[in-house]
Computed example of a mutant assay.
Amino acid sequence: MIEYLLVFITLFILIQAYFAIADKYNIIDKPNHRSAHSQITLRGGGIIFPIAFIIFCIFNYKEAMEMYWSFGLGLLAICLVSFIDDVKTLSGKIRITVHFLSVAILLNFTGTFDAMPVWAWPIFFIMIIGTLNAYNFMDGINGITGAYTLITLLTLLFINRDIISFTEENFIMYAILASLVFLFYNFRKKAKCFAGDVGSMGIGFWLIALITLLIMKTQDYKYILLFSVYGMEVVLTIIERIMLRENIFEAHRRHLYQLLANEKKMSHLVISAIYALTQLVVNLFLIYSKLPIYAVILIIFVPLGSIYLFLKLSLKKKVQSSVIK
Protein backbone atom coordinates (compact mmCIF):
# COMPACT_ATOMS: atom_id res chain seq x y z
CA MET A 1 0.00 0.00 0.00
CA ILE A 2 2.87 2.39 0.80
CA GLU A 3 4.40 1.54 -2.58
CA TYR A 4 1.17 2.51 -4.37
CA LEU A 5 0.95 5.78 -2.45
CA LEU A 6 4.54 6.64 -3.36
CA VAL A 7 3.88 5.81 -7.01
CA PHE A 8 0.67 7.85 -6.99
CA ILE A 9 2.45 10.92 -5.58
CA THR A 10 5.38 10.46 -7.97
CA LEU A 11 3.04 10.34 -10.96
CA PHE A 12 1.37 13.56 -9.82
CA ILE A 13 4.75 15.29 -9.55
CA LEU A 14 5.92 14.03 -12.94
CA ILE A 15 2.76 15.00 -14.80
CA GLN A 16 3.03 18.48 -13.32
CA ALA A 17 6.60 18.63 -14.63
CA TYR A 18 5.32 17.57 -18.05
CA PHE A 19 2.67 20.33 -17.97
CA ALA A 20 5.42 22.89 -17.44
CA ILE A 21 7.38 21.47 -20.39
CA ALA A 22 4.28 21.28 -22.63
CA ASP A 23 3.36 24.86 -21.76
CA LYS A 24 6.89 26.13 -22.46
CA TYR A 25 7.21 24.35 -25.81
CA ASN A 26 3.61 24.97 -26.91
CA ILE A 27 2.54 21.31 -26.99
CA ILE A 28 -1.16 22.11 -27.25
CA ASP A 29 -4.33 20.84 -28.87
CA LYS A 30 -6.10 23.44 -31.01
CA PRO A 31 -9.79 22.82 -31.79
CA ASN A 32 -10.61 21.85 -35.39
CA HIS A 33 -13.65 20.73 -37.38
CA ARG A 34 -13.45 17.24 -35.80
CA SER A 35 -13.03 18.46 -32.22
CA ALA A 36 -15.72 18.33 -29.57
CA HIS A 37 -13.90 20.96 -27.48
CA SER A 38 -13.57 24.69 -28.08
CA GLN A 39 -10.57 25.79 -26.01
CA ILE A 40 -6.83 25.28 -26.42
CA THR A 41 -5.64 22.52 -24.07
CA LEU A 42 -2.29 20.88 -23.28
CA ARG A 43 -1.73 17.78 -25.37
CA GLY A 44 0.10 14.59 -24.47
CA GLY A 45 -1.07 14.16 -20.87
CA GLY A 46 -1.25 10.45 -21.67
CA ILE A 47 2.53 10.37 -21.40
CA ILE A 48 1.74 9.41 -17.81
CA PHE A 49 1.14 5.81 -18.99
CA PRO A 50 4.65 5.02 -20.34
CA ILE A 51 6.04 6.91 -17.32
CA ALA A 52 4.01 4.61 -15.05
CA PHE A 53 5.52 1.58 -16.76
CA ILE A 54 9.05 2.93 -16.26
CA ILE A 55 8.28 3.41 -12.56
CA PHE A 56 6.86 -0.12 -12.50
CA CYS A 57 10.23 -1.37 -13.78
CA ILE A 58 12.07 0.59 -11.07
CA PHE A 59 9.92 -0.73 -8.21
CA ASN A 60 9.67 -4.25 -9.65
CA TYR A 61 13.10 -4.56 -11.24
CA LYS A 62 13.44 -8.34 -11.01
CA GLU A 63 10.02 -9.12 -12.51
CA ALA A 64 10.46 -6.43 -15.17
CA MET A 65 13.79 -7.82 -16.31
CA GLU A 66 12.53 -11.40 -16.35
CA MET A 67 9.06 -10.99 -17.86
CA TYR A 68 8.15 -7.49 -18.98
CA TRP A 69 11.20 -6.06 -20.76
CA SER A 70 9.91 -7.03 -24.22
CA PHE A 71 6.52 -5.48 -23.49
CA GLY A 72 8.36 -2.34 -22.43
CA LEU A 73 10.20 -2.16 -25.75
CA GLY A 74 6.94 -2.30 -27.67
CA LEU A 75 5.18 0.16 -25.37
CA LEU A 76 7.97 2.74 -25.38
CA ALA A 77 8.40 2.46 -29.16
CA ILE A 78 4.73 3.06 -29.90
CA CYS A 79 4.52 5.84 -27.28
CA LEU A 80 7.63 7.57 -28.62
CA VAL A 81 6.41 7.67 -32.21
CA SER A 82 2.94 8.74 -31.03
CA PHE A 83 4.35 11.55 -28.88
CA ILE A 84 6.49 12.82 -31.74
CA ASP A 85 3.38 12.70 -33.94
CA ASP A 86 1.52 14.73 -31.30
CA VAL A 87 4.19 17.42 -31.47
CA LYS A 88 4.99 17.26 -35.18
CA THR A 89 3.06 15.21 -37.74
CA LEU A 90 5.03 12.16 -38.85
CA SER A 91 4.93 10.23 -42.09
CA GLY A 92 2.27 7.54 -42.11
CA LYS A 93 4.88 5.01 -43.22
CA ILE A 94 6.94 5.65 -40.09
CA ARG A 95 3.92 5.28 -37.81
CA ILE A 96 2.73 2.09 -39.49
CA THR A 97 6.22 0.55 -39.37
CA VAL A 98 6.61 1.25 -35.64
CA HIS A 99 3.06 0.03 -34.95
CA PHE A 100 3.78 -3.20 -36.84
CA LEU A 101 7.03 -3.80 -34.94
CA SER A 102 5.41 -2.97 -31.58
CA VAL A 103 2.54 -5.38 -32.24
CA ALA A 104 5.03 -8.09 -33.22
CA ILE A 105 6.83 -7.55 -29.90
CA LEU A 106 3.51 -7.67 -28.05
CA LEU A 107 2.51 -10.96 -29.70
CA ASN A 108 5.86 -12.43 -28.74
CA PHE A 109 5.50 -11.13 -25.16
CA THR A 110 2.06 -12.69 -24.74
CA GLY A 111 3.12 -16.02 -26.23
CA THR A 112 0.68 -15.72 -29.12
CA PHE A 113 3.26 -16.70 -31.75
CA ASP A 114 3.93 -19.96 -29.89
CA ALA A 115 0.30 -20.73 -29.12
CA MET A 116 -1.22 -19.96 -32.53
CA PRO A 117 -0.60 -21.48 -35.98
CA VAL A 118 1.23 -19.28 -38.49
CA TRP A 119 -1.92 -18.70 -40.56
CA ALA A 120 -3.57 -17.06 -37.51
CA TRP A 121 -0.81 -14.50 -36.96
CA PRO A 122 -2.09 -11.99 -39.56
CA ILE A 123 -5.53 -12.13 -37.92
CA PHE A 124 -4.02 -11.10 -34.58
CA PHE A 125 -2.01 -8.33 -36.25
CA ILE A 126 -5.15 -6.92 -37.87
CA MET A 127 -7.20 -7.21 -34.67
CA ILE A 128 -4.58 -5.53 -32.48
CA ILE A 129 -3.75 -2.71 -34.88
CA GLY A 130 -7.49 -2.19 -35.40
CA THR A 131 -8.09 -2.07 -31.63
CA LEU A 132 -5.24 0.42 -31.15
CA ASN A 133 -6.71 2.70 -33.78
CA ALA A 134 -10.19 2.28 -32.31
CA TYR A 135 -8.86 3.43 -28.95
CA ASN A 136 -7.34 6.44 -30.69
CA PHE A 137 -10.55 7.26 -32.62
CA MET A 138 -12.63 7.17 -29.45
CA ASP A 139 -10.40 9.61 -27.59
CA GLY A 140 -12.35 12.73 -28.49
CA ILE A 141 -14.03 14.18 -25.41
CA ASN A 142 -13.05 14.89 -21.82
CA GLY A 143 -12.88 11.82 -19.60
CA ILE A 144 -13.82 9.13 -22.09
CA THR A 145 -10.40 7.47 -22.44
CA GLY A 146 -9.59 7.66 -18.73
CA ALA A 147 -12.99 6.46 -17.50
CA TYR A 148 -13.30 3.62 -20.02
CA THR A 149 -9.72 2.54 -19.32
CA LEU A 150 -10.24 2.58 -15.55
CA ILE A 151 -13.33 0.36 -15.79
CA THR A 152 -11.48 -2.13 -17.99
CA LEU A 153 -8.41 -2.19 -15.74
CA LEU A 154 -10.49 -2.66 -12.58
CA THR A 155 -12.29 -5.56 -14.28
CA LEU A 156 -8.95 -7.13 -15.19
CA LEU A 157 -7.71 -6.64 -11.62
CA PHE A 158 -10.81 -8.42 -10.29
CA ILE A 159 -10.36 -11.30 -12.74
CA ASN A 160 -6.67 -11.60 -11.85
CA ARG A 161 -7.39 -11.63 -8.11
CA ASP A 162 -10.61 -13.63 -7.85
CA ILE A 163 -11.00 -15.75 -10.99
CA ILE A 164 -7.64 -16.63 -12.54
CA SER A 165 -4.18 -15.19 -12.10
CA PHE A 166 -2.74 -14.31 -15.51
CA THR A 167 -0.14 -11.64 -14.67
CA GLU A 168 1.64 -9.84 -11.82
CA GLU A 169 -0.89 -7.69 -9.95
CA ASN A 170 1.39 -4.65 -10.03
CA PHE A 171 1.40 -4.80 -13.83
CA ILE A 172 -2.29 -3.86 -13.63
CA MET A 173 -2.11 -1.63 -10.55
CA TYR A 174 0.46 0.79 -12.01
CA ALA A 175 -1.78 1.32 -15.05
CA ILE A 176 -4.72 1.97 -12.68
CA LEU A 177 -2.71 4.55 -10.73
CA ALA A 178 -1.73 6.30 -13.97
CA SER A 179 -5.38 6.32 -15.07
CA LEU A 180 -6.47 7.91 -11.79
CA VAL A 181 -3.84 10.65 -12.09
CA PHE A 182 -4.78 11.31 -15.71
CA LEU A 183 -8.50 11.41 -14.85
CA PHE A 184 -7.84 14.03 -12.17
CA TYR A 185 -6.73 16.44 -14.90
CA ASN A 186 -8.93 15.23 -17.75
CA PHE A 187 -12.31 14.36 -16.20
CA ARG A 188 -13.33 17.99 -15.96
CA LYS A 189 -15.65 20.38 -17.75
CA LYS A 190 -12.51 22.24 -18.86
CA ALA A 191 -9.78 19.63 -19.03
CA LYS A 192 -6.25 20.53 -18.02
CA CYS A 193 -4.85 18.14 -20.64
CA PHE A 194 -5.78 15.63 -23.31
CA ALA A 195 -4.27 12.16 -23.66
CA GLY A 196 -2.99 12.73 -27.19
CA ASP A 197 -1.91 9.84 -29.39
CA VAL A 198 0.78 8.95 -26.85
CA GLY A 199 -1.94 8.34 -24.26
CA SER A 200 -4.57 6.55 -26.34
CA MET A 201 -1.98 4.37 -28.09
CA GLY A 202 0.02 3.77 -24.90
CA ILE A 203 -2.81 2.67 -22.66
CA GLY A 204 -4.49 0.86 -25.55
CA PHE A 205 -1.29 -1.15 -26.05
CA TRP A 206 -1.13 -1.92 -22.30
CA LEU A 207 -4.77 -3.05 -22.18
CA ILE A 208 -4.39 -5.21 -25.29
CA ALA A 209 -1.36 -6.88 -23.70
CA LEU A 210 -3.32 -7.63 -20.52
CA ILE A 211 -6.36 -8.99 -22.34
CA THR A 212 -4.20 -11.08 -24.67
CA LEU A 213 -2.37 -12.55 -21.66
CA LEU A 214 -5.76 -13.39 -20.15
CA ILE A 215 -6.96 -15.04 -23.37
CA MET A 216 -3.75 -17.04 -23.75
CA LYS A 217 -4.05 -18.19 -20.12
CA THR A 218 -7.73 -19.20 -20.29
CA GLN A 219 -8.02 -19.96 -24.02
CA ASP A 220 -11.36 -18.17 -23.75
CA TYR A 221 -11.90 -15.55 -26.45
CA LYS A 222 -14.94 -14.03 -24.76
CA TYR A 223 -12.58 -11.60 -23.02
CA ILE A 224 -12.24 -9.71 -26.30
CA LEU A 225 -15.64 -8.31 -25.28
CA LEU A 226 -13.91 -6.22 -22.61
CA PHE A 227 -13.50 -3.83 -25.59
CA SER A 228 -17.06 -4.38 -26.86
CA VAL A 229 -18.50 -0.85 -26.45
CA TYR A 230 -15.60 0.82 -28.25
CA GLY A 231 -15.39 -2.00 -30.78
CA MET A 232 -19.08 -1.87 -31.69
CA GLU A 233 -19.06 1.90 -32.12
CA VAL A 234 -15.95 1.98 -34.30
CA VAL A 235 -17.05 -0.92 -36.53
CA LEU A 236 -20.57 0.50 -37.06
CA THR A 237 -19.17 3.97 -37.76
CA ILE A 238 -16.73 2.57 -40.34
CA ILE A 239 -19.57 0.64 -42.02
CA GLU A 240 -21.67 3.82 -42.09
CA ARG A 241 -18.84 5.82 -43.69
CA ILE A 242 -18.19 3.12 -46.27
CA MET A 243 -21.90 3.15 -47.19
CA LEU A 244 -21.69 6.93 -47.56
CA ARG A 245 -18.57 6.49 -49.73
CA GLU A 246 -16.46 8.56 -47.37
CA ASN A 247 -12.73 8.15 -46.87
CA ILE A 248 -12.56 6.21 -43.60
CA PHE A 249 -9.04 7.50 -42.94
CA GLU A 250 -10.07 11.17 -42.90
CA ALA A 251 -11.14 13.02 -39.73
CA HIS A 252 -14.87 13.08 -39.09
CA ARG A 253 -17.59 13.71 -36.51
CA ARG A 254 -19.82 10.69 -37.07
CA HIS A 255 -19.14 8.81 -33.84
CA LEU A 256 -22.14 8.72 -31.53
CA TYR A 257 -20.23 10.39 -28.70
CA GLN A 258 -19.34 13.24 -31.08
CA LEU A 259 -22.96 13.69 -32.12
CA LEU A 260 -24.10 13.67 -28.51
CA ALA A 261 -21.49 16.27 -27.56
CA ASN A 262 -21.75 18.50 -30.64
CA GLU A 263 -25.39 18.24 -31.70
CA LYS A 264 -27.17 17.27 -28.48
CA LYS A 265 -24.82 19.51 -26.43
CA MET A 266 -24.63 16.83 -23.77
CA SER A 267 -21.95 17.14 -21.09
CA HIS A 268 -18.70 15.41 -22.01
CA LEU A 269 -18.48 13.97 -18.53
CA VAL A 270 -21.99 12.50 -18.70
CA ILE A 271 -21.23 10.88 -22.07
CA SER A 272 -17.93 9.50 -20.79
CA ALA A 273 -19.62 8.09 -17.69
CA ILE A 274 -22.32 6.43 -19.81
CA TYR A 275 -19.74 4.74 -22.03
CA ALA A 276 -17.72 3.55 -19.03
CA LEU A 277 -20.75 2.29 -17.10
CA THR A 278 -22.12 0.53 -20.17
CA GLN A 279 -18.84 -1.34 -20.50
CA LEU A 280 -18.99 -2.14 -16.77
CA VAL A 281 -22.43 -3.75 -17.20
CA VAL A 282 -21.08 -5.76 -20.16
CA ASN A 283 -18.06 -6.83 -18.10
CA LEU A 284 -20.19 -8.04 -15.19
CA PHE A 285 -22.39 -10.05 -17.54
CA LEU A 286 -19.27 -11.42 -19.24
CA ILE A 287 -17.75 -12.56 -15.94
CA TYR A 288 -20.81 -14.12 -14.34
CA SER A 289 -22.61 -15.53 -17.37
CA LYS A 290 -22.18 -19.25 -18.01
CA LEU A 291 -23.54 -19.02 -21.55
CA PRO A 292 -21.46 -20.00 -24.60
CA ILE A 293 -19.59 -17.18 -26.30
CA TYR A 294 -21.95 -16.92 -29.29
CA ALA A 295 -24.91 -16.41 -26.94
CA VAL A 296 -22.99 -13.82 -24.93
CA ILE A 297 -22.15 -11.93 -28.13
CA LEU A 298 -25.79 -11.93 -29.24
CA ILE A 299 -27.08 -10.82 -25.84
CA ILE A 300 -24.54 -7.98 -25.69
CA PHE A 301 -24.51 -6.71 -29.26
CA VAL A 302 -28.18 -6.94 -30.27
CA PRO A 303 -29.44 -4.50 -27.59
CA LEU A 304 -26.32 -2.31 -27.71
CA GLY A 305 -26.41 -2.14 -31.50
CA SER A 306 -30.13 -1.36 -31.49
CA ILE A 307 -29.68 1.48 -28.97
CA TYR A 308 -26.71 2.81 -30.93
CA LEU A 309 -28.59 2.84 -34.25
CA PHE A 310 -31.70 4.39 -32.68
CA LEU A 311 -29.69 7.23 -31.15
CA LYS A 312 -27.71 7.75 -34.35
CA LEU A 313 -30.87 8.01 -36.47
CA SER A 314 -32.57 10.32 -33.96
CA LEU A 315 -29.61 12.69 -33.87
CA LYS A 316 -29.30 12.69 -37.66
CA LYS A 317 -32.98 13.63 -38.05
CA LYS A 318 -32.46 16.44 -35.56
CA VAL A 319 -29.46 17.75 -37.51
CA GLN A 320 -31.31 17.54 -40.81
CA SER A 321 -34.41 19.32 -39.47
CA SER A 322 -32.28 22.11 -37.98
CA VAL A 323 -30.50 22.56 -41.36
CA ILE A 324 -33.86 22.80 -43.18
CA LYS A 325 -35.09 25.43 -40.72
Rank of each mutant, 00 (worst) to 15 (best):
residue 63 E to C: 00
residue 316 K to R: 15
residue 183 L to V: 00
residue 223 Y to I: 13
residue 181 V to S: 04
residue 244 L to V: 02
residue 75 L to Y: 03
residue 18 Y to R: 01
residue 265 K to P: 07
residue 124 F to L: 13
residue 76 L to Q: 06
residue 2 I to K: 14
residue 243 M to K: 10
residue 55 I to M: 11
residue 311 L to C: 10
residue 258 Q to Y: 09
residue 126 I to L: 15
residue 130 G to N: 07
residue 301 F to L: 10
residue 272 S to E: 02
residue 100 F to E: 05
residue 236 L to I: 12
residue 104 A to M: 10
residue 57 C to W: 06
residue 188 R to C: 05
residue 169 E to Y: 05
residue 76 L to H: 02
residue 25 Y to H: 12
residue 240 E to F: 13
residue 130 G to F: 15
residue 101 L to K: 01
residue 185 Y to R: 09
residue 55 I to N: 08
residue 242 I to F: 03
residue 180 L to C: 06
residue 231 G to C: 03
residue 168 E to W: 04
residue 139 D to K: 02
residue 308 Y to T: 03
residue 159 I to N: 13
residue 43 R to E: 02
residue 207 L to H: 01
residue 278 T to M: 09
residue 203 I to M: 11
residue 302 V to R: 09
residue 5 L to Q: 12
residue 23 D to Q: 12
residue 189 K to A: 13
residue 26 N to H: 12
residue 265 K to D: 12
residue 108 N to T: 10
residue 243 M to C: 06
residue 287 I to G: 11
residue 309 L to H: 08
residue 225 L to P: 06
residue 219 Q to M: 12
residue 323 V to N: 07
residue 72 G to L: 00
residue 80 L to Q: 04
residue 139 D to V: 02
residue 53 F to G: 05
residue 312 K to P: 06
residue 154 L to W: 04
residue 15 I to E: 14
residue 229 V to W: 07
residue 182 F to C: 10
residue 253 R to Y: 00
residue 298 L to R: 02
residue 185 Y to H: 15
residue 72 G to K: 03
residue 245 R to S: 13
residue 263 E to N: 15
residue 267 S to H: 08
residue 92 G to A: 08
residue 249 F to K: 06
residue 169 E to R: 04
residue 2 I to R: 15
residue 313 L to V: 03
residue 93 K to V: 01
residue 139 D to W: 00
residue 5 L to M: 14
residue 285 F to E: 08
residue 183 L to C: 05
residue 277 L to R: 00
residue 302 V to N: 06
residue 185 Y to K: 09
residue 210 L to S: 02
residue 198 V to M: 06
residue 249 F to W: 12
residue 60 N to F: 09
residue 76 L to P: 01
residue 229 V to Y: 11
residue 127 M to D: 02
residue 3 E to K: 13
residue 44 G to V: 11
residue 49 F to N: 04
residue 164 I to M: 14
residue 114 D to M: 14
residue 210 L to H: 03
residue 228 S to A: 12
residue 27 I to N: 10
residue 244 L to H: 11
residue 154 L to Y: 08
residue 276 A to I: 08
residue 86 D to F: 13
residue 80 L to T: 15
residue 304 L to C: 04
residue 232 M to P: 00
residue 171 F to K: 08
residue 25 Y to E: 07
residue 153 L to H: 06
residue 219 Q to W: 08
residue 11 L to C: 12
residue 251 A to P: 15
residue 178 A to F: 05
residue 184 F to E: 02
residue 251 A to V: 07
residue 152 T to N: 07
residue 270 V to W: 15
residue 52 A to H: 06
residue 323 V to M: 06
residue 45 G to D: 05
residue 208 I to M: 13
residue 55 I to W: 10
residue 319 V to Y: 14
residue 207 L to A: 05
residue 28 I to Q: 09
residue 138 M to S: 03
residue 237 T to W: 07
residue 208 I to Q: 04
residue 153 L to W: 00
residue 200 S to F: 06
residue 49 F to D: 00
residue 214 L to I: 10
residue 195 A to W: 09
residue 28 I to E: 09
residue 139 D to C: 03
residue 95 R to G: 05
residue 308 Y to E: 08
residue 89 T to A: 14
residue 250 E to N: 10
